[in-house]
Design a protein around this nucleic acid. Structure first.
Lengths: 348, 348
DNA sequence: TTGAAAGCGATACCAC
DNA sequence: GTGGTATCGCTTTCAA
């Protein structure tokens, strides 16, 4: 009844009140004033629910992250929001850690118009051929950690996890390390897989035989055991490549507690360069992906999927490292090696 | 046209299709089957936009946080979501760091029915008498950092920042420290103010004359200068109480770099017990507020504000420490002192 | 430049 | 148990 009320007070039709908000310059100055007065008088706000309903869209982009509180997202969501707002979308964040996020979930969310589009930073469980086809149709952009190999390049906007890991491992190799182990969370996703592959390939390219990947469970409960295992079965180990900073940050004190000096006896390398990586003792060497730089492209891509007429020519947006021929796009900087004091020359 | 389509296919009225979802047990078995088949056949999902519109509510609770990526929220949003979902609400998160969140913003968000209720963990800028009255009417629950003194107890669900800080400072005092400085972020909010007050009161109660509060700007740029200042103007300083862990984590390496051993020469105490507090070297002593424990009460309170008939008797929910007569509620545990290795006896 | 009116899709009341 | 239908508040032709 609200727009009606305002119309009544202003002595105009509801259409005019509607125009007051959507196309104010169509109104005659005098009419505009009358409506404005009425609107102010009752402090009228158009009912978003009704607007959304009528327009058939919610004006909402939802960013799905595994868990809030992960410092990785810090700048990314910020950049996403700024870009999206410029295009008239509001951005809200959904945590996926408490509910298994399935293809069906995305489908429902979008079909029922809860959100106009999704930016997903969580791994998607099983993507078989059928679900893949479904996802293809949906306005979703997958980033970081999606099962990109099941998705086309217009679906997935990736980061060069593979090459970054390759480079990080190569850095350790260049420091003279010959026995490097890799530690990954047990709950593995595609980003982690790519990083592990980067590590493996670096080891192989260097013709080392001691390639070793260990998996830590979510709660860093088994990390002490894991570490013990490393040094008992691979006593020659002089470097650890952790596929994320959290693992590295967890493991560094454990190394020290076990009597292994960092970096004198053992070098530790992280991944992501979270805010806390520079605060460890010694500060953590790590790699940083240009997460916030891809925000613009992500929104662009998403908009073109929400409204296919939006931008007919979607430019090439594949920044993944599926194969050796793929390279980083020049449009935004590639990964960056951040060298601090947790890595050093291998002890002789 | 969708419910209509399903009704057509099933050969029933739209009312029946509607009931299929809302009150399925009202349908005759045979009718139920027919509708079910039709629904499955076209993979029909009720349009949430239409439902929300018709029902006049969005079924959404939005948690407003200053910035995602802050580990404080990690468990809290989780707990909020679980509780809210049990009551039929979905929970999304809104970052406030990019847009100044004003009273008007909240008002619009709720009036326009974007969300049914808000849980706010950001400070609210200026709350004068008028805005206070407005907020009183709105389905908002303020937590942690709100200007609680401007709000009534049915509005604000607080944490005992004051007493936790008092206790933390008293712990330093009990270790023999007589010259304790306090460092707070420059962008101060009520939670920080309460903590600072807790610190001050502890100092006063101990009859120390050297009470000193310093403010670090958001980017920890001036922290080195601040620290230098501490030791030049207060060379007797043997302990630092930081009003949040981030400050403590930032300052610890700086102390060490400046040649002050932690905790031998200087003790450092944090606040919040974020995930990374235990990873510093030495591990950080801190205090932890029962943030995730209040999730249930927060949702309860919010629901009673969304629908006043929901729970006529709102039980006493004031857990703040406005005055000395207020005490922690027995319903959830109070703060907890987490003692690690960054605090030790004052050097003699 | 403005108004009248047809819906958007679902809900719920009132009949039968 | 089921169907008909008014209605939620707004947007958007189409006419005037």
């Amino acid at each position: 009844m609200s727009i009606k009320k305002v119309a009544e007070i202003a002595g105009v039709s509801i259409a005019t009140v509607s125009r007051f908000f959507s196309k104010p310059n169509l109104l005659k100055q005098a009419t505009y004033e009358r409506v404005k007065n009425a609107v102010d008088a009752v402090n009228y706000k158009p009912n978003t629910l009704a607007q959304n309903f009528r327009r058939g869209k919610s004006g909402l982009i939802i960013v799905v992250v595994y868990r809030i509180g992960n410092p990785i997202y810090e700048n990314f969501t910020h950049a996403i929001t700024t870009t999206a707002q410029a295009k008239g979308y509001d951005v809200l964040i959904k945590e996926s850690s408490q509910a298994p996020v399935t293809v069906k979930y995305y489908q429902d969310m979008l079909n029922s118009k809860q959100a106009d589009g999704l930016i997903v930073m969580t791994d998607m469980p099983q993507a078989n051929r059928k679900t893949q086809e479904i996802l293809q149709q949906l306005p979703i952009v997958f980033i970081e950690g999606a099962n990109h190999k099941d998705l086309s390049s217009t679906q997935y906007l990736g980061l060069d996890n593979y090459r970054a890991a390759l480079k990080a491992t190569n850095h350790l190799i260049s420091l003279g390390h010959k026995h490097i182990v890799c530690i990954s969370p047990e709950a593995i996703n595609t980003a982690y897989m790519q990083r592990i592959k980067g590590y493996s390939d670096a080891i192989k390219q260097a013709n080392f035989k001691t390639e070793k990947v260990l998996y830590a469970c979510q709660q860093p409960c088994n990390l002490p055991i894991l570490l013990e295992q490393v040094f008992s079965t691979h006593p020659a180990t002089t470097a650890i490549f952790c596929v994320d900073d959290d693992i590295a940050i967890d493991i560094m004190p454990l190394c020290k507690a076990a009597g292994h000096q960092v970096p004198n006896n053992i070098s530790i390398m992280g991944f992501n360069n979270i805010r806390y990586a520079s605060k460890t003792s010694p500060p953590l060497s790590t790699v940083e992906l240009p997460l916030s730089d891809i925000a613009h492209d992500a929104i662009q891509l998403l908009c073109s999927k929400i409204d296919p007429t939006y931008e007919p020519s979607v430019k090439q947006l594949d920044h993944t490292a599926n194969s050796s021929r793929t390279s980083n796009s020049p449009s935004y900087p590639p990964f960056q090696l951040i060298l601090r004091a947790s890595t050093a020359k291998a002890p002789s």
